[in-house]
Design a protein around this nucleic acid. Structure first.
Lengths: 348, 348
DNA sequence: TGAGAAAATGTACGCGCGTACAGTAAACGT
DNA sequence: ACGTTTACTGTACGCGCGTACATTTTCTCA
């Protein structure tokens, strides 16, 4: 029961060549006589030889793994199906294409962030960090990575004062488009239900919001800006306040920083007898699946998550092989408005 | 720029001991004089020594990785947020506890399933397979794994004629409970909107459905059983047919094999002027997030995904170390009914 | 035909660690 | 006092592969 897997040696013996030749054939290195090439390949096939990834990693001193750090539940809920599966699929597809495997790490919010240790232990050659927050412990960990010049990349989070690689969506433009859309629909007093500013995308949305108002010569100062935490519950809990503002005529449309908050708000306002697309306009963000489930369906901003993951992986992995060809990147992917019922009708 | 990471040798030199002693201290092997132990630990700390996982894997001839195979999009959509993140979190938590990392593999539906190659290449020591289907290529691949006595486990899929390790939810009992609940609510003609029978849980649900009817002395033969593909769209597309059945009085409640189908059906029937919880009863399955977004909210069956993942990982990883203590397992986790509005009112 | 270049292959070693075995020092019993 | 365990530490080797370098074979062109 303690049989060892087939190794290079056996293949070499069967093919009547040296181990080095087997290696060369399988790795396509150096000139090889076609005939021996065939002999080796046949021998390998006959023995069902599969090189030991472990030994290869050891000899190459590269793990061939792309690390993915993602926040533990319930944070991960912040990322709905779409975010999560799309992003991961995008990363996975590109990684596979580049010959890398994905190594997953769940990061508890309060656990120490030993990101660099993953590199030191050589478990990963590069790393994508999801759901990073702008908190001291996180900054520390990222600074460490940067100091050791690790190949890493943040998705959906930027640190304005740091030169880290990032891939993000252009939330500012997205919100600007949303506001513009609402204004075109006839809404006049637009508010923002934003997320906490520890996330750069919250700050981006606020900026886009202000820009949009400024472009329309509207005073941004008195436009209502509420802060939730991206959860449905937090959207719901703002319903009372929003209902009041609507009744007072101080608000007739809301852009929410996430579909989840938008949906919560929509549900809450429904209990106040206020219907999206009739009594007020509502735009969410993420174009999540849930946006299609509400009544009316939710106008939202669609974010190219798959591309985000794919781009991040591509930049990291191809640059990793190009040695110092790396130049750093801060990508902003375009966001697109998807119009549905919740912003359909101009309020009376 | 080509500096090598700190290795055991440097630690040994600094501590004034042999490399073997360093190894022993760090692995807690053999008797060590307390004083040298401290010296070694201090030296390691001073140098920020982190053992090379690659070298350890090589020497131990174990990767320390738990492979997770999951279907590529859009299949993954079958697993909504809940399924996916809960399951993965459960697996991840247990794996971390056992000292394993997670290696992710996306499996395209039509790609060759070289599961065993992952073991041969020693990329993984054990493996959890999500979204397996009952198709020849899959059976072949699993048979190969079994023949090589790999430590693997299927989640949410069983092959009745094979002794593979599985962790599943007790869908039969769940559907039975759902049917019973509907009958108690006063619904009388219950139908089933099931998924394709390539998934064992579809078969389970059908069985539970039939059992429930039989228990109530109802003829199962003429109870409507429709087949969708678990997607919202497929639920929606059955709305016409279901509406007709409801109008003819041949149906007044439906158990759907997934929340997604239930939601699609609910939306479709709404267009027919039929409201869940009023004109007909509806129960979904998975207690997904979407179940809370519909109007009325969806009664559903909650499945312990976290535990499923956690259990699967635990069985695989602890048994892996216990050598042949493995005995095989076919777990069925309990499913619980969550009552919401869609099954609230007895139809007139 | 021979010399030099190019092609093809073999030899040898190291990657960093775990660990069997050998060795040495301390503790014990008589 | 000495043999004998026990505690502790060092020496030595192998894990399977990539690859630098040495060697042999084949080709090229005079």
């Amino acid at each position: 029961m303690e049989e060892r897997p087939i190794s290079r040696k056996e293949v070499a013996r069967l093919a009547g060549v040296s181990e080095a030749t087997v290696s060369r054939v399988l790795n396509g290195v150096g000139p090889i006589k076609e005939e021996t090439r065939q002999r080796v390949l046949e021998a390998a096939a006959a023995l069902h030889y599969v090189p030991s990834a472990i030994a290869q990693q050891f000899a190459r001193r590269r793990s061939g793994n792309l690390g993915i750090i993602l926040p533990l539940l319930p944070k991960v809920n912040l990322f709905a199906t779409h975010y999560f599966s799309e992003l991961l699929s995008g990363i996975g597809a590109t990684a596979k294409q580049e010959g890398y495997d994905l190594l997953l790490f769940f990061q508890g919010h309060d656990e120490p962030r030993h990101y660099d240790r993953l590199f030191q232990a050589q478990k990963i050659d590069a790393c994508i960090i999801l759901g990073a927050q702008d908190v001291p412990a996180e900054r520390e960990a990222l600074k460490e990575l940067h100091a050791a010049s690790r190949a890493f990349c943040l998705i959906s989070q930027r640190y304005e004062d740091e030169p880290y690689n990032t891939v993000d969506a252009d939330h500012a433009s997205g919100v600007r488009a949303a506001v513009k859309h609402l204004l075109e629909k006839g809404y006049e007093r637009i508010g923002l239900l934003n997320g906490p500013s520890v996330y750069s995308n919250s700050r981006d949305r606020l900026e886009g919001f202000r820009q949009a108002l400024a472009e329309q010569q509207l005073a941004a100062s008195d436009a209502p800006v509420l802060i939730g935490n991206y959860s449905r519950k937090s959207g719901y809990s703002h319903a009372d306040q929003v209902a009041m503002l609507i009744r007072k005529g101080e608000l007739d449309a809301i852009v929410a920083g996430s579909d989840r908050m938008a949906i919560g708000l929509l549900q809450g306002l429904k209990e106040h007898g206020l219907t999206a697309g009739i009594h007020y306009g509502l735009v969410g963000c993420d174009d999540s699946e849930g946006s299609r489930l509400t009544d009316p369906a939710l106008t939202s901003l669609t974010v190219p998550f798959y591309e985000a993951g794919s781009e991040a992986a591509a930049r990291l992995l191809t640059s990793a092989s190009d040695e110092e060809a790396e130049s750093g990147f801060q990508l902003k992917l375009p966001v697109q408005l998807v119009v549905r019922g919740s912003s359909a009708v101009r309020p009376l």
